[in-house]
């Protein structure tokens, strides 16, 4: 049922959520345009289509501002993956994920996967500053990083939350440790009523990225794309089984709207 409102073209839907100024648009820009540029505060939501092999992946980059909070559930409807984004230098941005954004994902697909992403890690972590801007190098890096996704996670774990800034004269204090994000991941699973054992492990679904340097950004999106593939295949099968799906979909969508109005 949650897939019902989705239209023909995109095979799967991925949503970026998180407080304003955490860097959602920048992450997406970095991934799609290989660039980091100044963005302005997103209005409403921005829809992108990404070709991933033979599949069309739609990505909703949502506004983090409270002004648009009410739309969140609409953007999330039927989503197969939700990227909850926070700013590692801002504790409140992690807290907001739980307080404001988690409930929006109620309309997501039942098998929706969650990723928790701490952005702006270049401000706190010398390792993330090393990444290069040029796309040639970051292509290289992509593979490199994918291989070491887990080691990277592990290596940042031991960093005590209190004193990461002393590493190389970095001025910004890291307010959110990787463990905090992983703890939140656990709470999200519980909120969703999912078994921790049968779900994807926190180590795999908690990322620390830098849209500015490109650090870990490709790894984030590509990991998610790979993980939502089963969802695409399942949906394709459903569509083949039922050629009259369009009518069903329409009715499903409108009855759903009625439900949300009340």
């Amino acid at each position: 049922m949650p897939e019902a409102s989705k239209m023909k073209k995109p095979d799967v839907k991925l949503v970026l959520l998180g407080d304003m100024n955490v860097g959602k648009t920048s992450l997406l820009h970095r991934y799609t345009d290989r660039k980091f540029k100044d963005t302005v505060s997103t209005v409403g939501g921005a829809f992108f289509l990404k070709q991933w092999g033979p599949y069309n992946i739609s990505i909703w980059d949502t506004a983090g501002r409270e002004q648009f909070h009410g739309l969140g559930s609409m953007y999330c409807r039927g989503a197969s993956a939700v990227i909850l984004t926070y700013d590692v230098t801002n504790w409140q941005s992690l807290a907001e994920l739980e307080e404001r954004f988690l409930s929006l994902t109620d309309t997501a697909s039942h098998d929706c996967i969650f990723a928790i992403v701490g952005n702006k890690v270049d401000l706190t972590d010398p390792k993330a500053q090393l990444s290069q801007d040029s796309s040639g190098v970051s292509e290289d890096q992509t593979e490199h990083e994918e291989e070491r996704t887990e080691p990277q996670v592990l290596s940042s774990c031991p960093t005590p939350p209190a004193s990461p800034a002393s590493l190389s004269g970095i001025t910004v204090h890291k307010q959110v440790a990787h463990e905090d994000a992983m703890a939140l991941y656990g709470r999200i699973l519980r909120y969703k009523g999912l078994e921790e054992k049968s779900s994807l492990p926190a180590e795999r679904m908690c990322f620390e990225t830098s849209a500015k340097t490109g650090y870990n950004v490709d790894a984030l999106f590509e990991t998610l794309f790979d993980l939502v593939l089963p969802s695409i295949l399942r949906k394709r099968n459903e569509n083949q089984q039922c050629p009259t799906i369009d009518l069903e979909e329409c009715r499903g969508a409108s009855s759903k709207r009625a439900r949300f109005c009340c």
Binding site: T25, H29, T32, D33, T39, V40, S41, T42, V43, G44, G45, A46, F47, F48, D61, A63, F68, G70, L71
Partner: peptide, 17 residues
């Protein structure tokens, strides 16, 4: 003005109230 002031509109398709 909304369109002019938001360069974010230049990428993707926007849906906003």
């Amino acid at each position: 003005n909304l369109i002019g002031a938001s360069s974010a509109f230049q990428a993707g398709e926007i849906w906003t109230p």
